[in-house]
């Protein structure tokens, strides 16, 4: 087993053995169930009947597990996903500095760059696992309640109204999860980069969340419409585009290239700062 793999395994062990991590997964599951319960309210269902029928589908066919799973993933990610990823990424370096465990690690003949690389990769893996958990658990819970059927993708802010049969819909749904994961990795990258600075873990998390909320709010202000592409959340939202027919591949590639550049830039800035720091009790 290579040393890098052993070290990465240690990082992941540290991350996933924390009570907060697995309690977090429980919290996501609870939120998913709450959202599903809201979708059972007759008034809400009447609205859905209206939307589905206006899109040309039948309510009984398209108010299905897949349709609800997508809504659950969207809302869960919006309400909790970013928060949890910012919390984990904002903690990953700064909490270890605060606790003194990073100083123990830095007694070892390992470069700071390698320590950061391991932690960053662990953050990305956490993001991927979290999205996979949200996506799969939402699908299982929603299908258990609502059964299989067609897939109505409904995202009015993005002007997205598409009907799919079950299998093509399932394919698009599963394909959207890695893309959502890629989008959320930008939240992880910003949180991680701030965590490399000399600040409290909570400050890194709050700064990350504040940035993304501000970005989201400013993006949707009408007089910023002309510079919409300057906002990071305009690009992180590109994962919905997998549901469009046809899929705007070039736009998505551009968006993810933009996000990749953002990730690389912020992580390098964080690493350069970390490299310059003195660690002392």
């Amino acid at each position: 087993m290579s040393l890098f793999y052993r070290q990465l395994r240690g990082e992941l062990w540290k991350l996933f053995a924390r009570k907060r991590t697995y309690i977090g997964f429980g919290a996501f599951l609870a939120l998913e169930i709450v959202i599903l319960i809201i979708f059972q309210i007759p008034k809400v269902q009447r609205s859905w009947r209206h939307f589905i029928e206006r899109a040309g589908g039948g309510f009984d066919e398209y108010f299905s597990g897949l349709t609800l799973a997508f809504q659950v993933v969207y809302w869960t990610t919006f309400l909790l996903g970013g928060l949890y990823i910012a919390l984990v990424a904002g903690d990953v370096v700064s909490k270890e500095v605060e606790d003194g465990t990073l100083r123990m690690t830095l007694c070892r003949p390992v470069s700071r760059v390698r320590v950061l690389l391991l932690k960053y990769v662990a953050c990305l893996i956490y993001t991927a696992v979290l999205v996979a958990f949200i996506g799969v658990s939402a699908l299982l819970v929603a299908t258990a309640r609502q059964g299989t059927g067609g897939f109505f993708v409904f995202q009015p802010l993005e002007k997205l109204f598409v009907l799919y049969e079950f299998w093509p819909g399932l394919g698009r749904y599963l394909a959207s999860l890695p893309l959502l994961g890629l989008s959320l990795m930008t939240v992880a990258s910003v949180g991680f980069a701030l965590s490399c600075f000399n600040m409290k873990p909570a400050a890194a998390t709050i700064c990350t969340l504040s940035y993304f909320f501000a970005d989201l709010i400013f993006r949707d202000i009408p007089y910023f419409e002309s510079i919409r592409e300057w906002f990071i959340t305009s690009h992180t939202d590109t994962w919905y585009n997998i549901f469009r027919v046809p899929v705007p591949v070039q736009l998505m590639v551009e968006d993810y290239a933009y996000l990749l550049a953002v990730n690389a830039t912020v992580v390098i800035i964080g690493a350069l700062n970390f490299q310059q720091r003195d660690f002392k009790s």
């Binding site: 540290k14 053995a17 009570k19 003194g100 465990t101 100083r103 123990m104 007694c107 070892r108 009790s281």
Partner: peptide, 16 residues
């Protein structure tokens, strides 16, 4: 630092 070990006044560990 290949053959160097160190401990501090209060060695910090992952308590969990």
């Amino acid at each position: 630092l290949e053959k160097t070990g160190a401990i501090f006044e209060q060695p910090r560990f992952y308590d969990y």
